[in-house]
Design a protein around this nucleic acid. Structure first.
Length: 417
DNA sequence: AAAGCGGGGAC
DNA sequence: GTCCCAGCTTT
């Protein structure tokens, strides 16, 4: 019994060739197999080589379903016959859609393109303006990467977004998924994608019960996705539409909970449905819980100018990098002791000697890794400092529209007005 | 391999 | 409350 998979490598990128080679070796070492390995080997066979009829059925059913049920979205052509959208639109939408739902992205996408209608306008913009348009969307590194991406494409690719996976992967903020999405959607290249939707669908169709965020399983899923994406020789060579049909199915039918199996175009091909357990897949590794921390916000009023407060810019790395805020420090102990610490911090780091510190408000903010309790304090300086620390400035709260703030900072600022 | 990185939708 | 979302990067 041979377990060497027969894959066409004609259209695989070097990365996939590497993965494939690695697993060929793995499988070679598995032969001859031990009896206790039969289950594992059966699973590997399945994952490597679905029956060609299964592959064809999945492709054609998904494409037919997509033609009838695709949502109208701003980054899609209005109809199959209308002009293709610029690759720049695909780049922007894919950056925004990373870990973010379609409904959340739509208004941001419109505002962004209104301000930066072309790659060149984006490349020439200030990072501050790009971040401000991203305000509230989260994962702000995406905005800075997209901005850097535009600059790089202008200088190193003559302003033309590259269509090959390797060039795309070299750009900041573009990983395997986004490279595959841009190559397939914007340039109709037969590149696979693997996002949360595709993982969910593949794990259910092929009944993959291993944790899908485990690296070897993830590699198998990439190989599976690579086999399923239409190849140039096939009659239904629409890799961009096929990839989008997978994600569309994951969003509209094959949802994490309460999947609508009754209306699923590939229900008959789904092993998890046959097993009666689609909702139990995919299996994921347990995630760590958010850590509680305390952040203290200092609302320092200008002694003479009304409604004017001291602002600072956050460091270029870490949480809310490069965004603006009322001076804020992390201080993790009881609130009573905090006042002295706040005064010391204001003197040392802001050159402000507080005349009075008044607690104003406390509120919680949730991120993926932190549960932050914000403590908002009003501070009246004893005098106006002769000079300010770098990256700090006095600013009227009426004139903040051009600066990027995190949601909790906006909340604190709103409480001051 | 694991952690850091946001905010909101859906239930 | 929970889980997850058209993931990427750093350690």
């Amino acid at each position: 019994m041979t377990l060497i998979p027969t894959l066409s490598t004609d259209f695989l990128t070097p990365l996939y060739r590497f993965i494939l080679l690695h697993h060929r070796q793995t499988l070679t070492h598995t032969v001859p197999c031990q009896t206790q390995d039969y289950d594992l080997i059966a699973r590997y066979r399945l994952m490597f080589k679905p029956h060609s009829n299964t592959i064809k059925a999945i492709r054609s059913r998904l494409l037919d379903w997509y033609d009838q049920n695709a949502r109208s979205l701003p980054w899609r052509p209005a109809s199959p016959t209308s002009a293709p959208i610029p690759p720049y639109y695909t780049l922007v939408s894919e950056a925004m859609l990373q870990q973010t739902q379609v409904a959340t992205v739509i208004p941001y996408f419109h505002r962004f393109l209104e301000t930066f209608p072309t790659l060149e306008t984006l490349a020439n913009a200030d990072e501050q303006q790009v971040l401000t348009l991203w305000q509230g969307l989260g994962y702000y590194r995406r905005a800075r990467n997209l901005h850097a991406c535009a600059k790089t494409i202008i200088t190193e690719h003559n302003g033309i977004i590259p269509s090959d996976i390797d060039s795309l992967l070299a750009l900041p903020g573009i990983g395997q998924y986004t490279a595959g999405a841009i190559a397939s959607i914007a340039f109709n290249q037969p590149a696979p994608i693997l996002d949360g939707n595709v993982i969910r669908i593949l794990s259910r169709i092929f009944f993959i019960t291993d944790p899908t965020d485990h690296t070897p399983v993830k590699k198998q899923l990439w190989l599976l996705a690579d086999q399923l994406v239409p190849a140039p020789v096939s009659t239904d060579f629409r890799p961009g539409d096929y990839n989008q049909s997978m994600m569309e199915l994951g969003a509209l039918i094959c949802s994490p909970r309460n999947p609508k199996c009754d209306t699923c175009p590939i229900q008959k091909l789904c092993k998890a449905y046959a097993d009666g357990s689609p909702e139990s897949l995919p299996v994921t590794l347990p995630k760590s819980k958010p850590r509680p921390v305390n952040h203290h916000i200092l609302a320092i009023t200008h002694p003479s100018q009304p409604n004017t407060y001291l602002l600072e810019q956050r460091p270029p790395t870490g949480l809310w990098s490069n965004m603006y805020q009322l001076p804020t420090l992390e201080l993790n102990h009881s609130k009573d002791i905090a006042t002295d610490q706040l005064a010391a911090y204001a003197q040392k780091h802001l050159k402000i000697k507080p005349q009075a510190i008044t607690p104003l408000k406390t509120f919680k903010h949730q991120t993926t890794h932190l549960t932050i309790t914000f403590h908002l304090h009003a501070i009246t300086p004893a005098f106006i400092p002769s000079q300010l620390k770098p990256k700090t400035q006095w600013r009227s709260l009426d004139k903040l529209a051009d600066l990027p703030f995190s949601n909790p900072q906006l909340k604190a600022i709103k409480a001051m007005n």
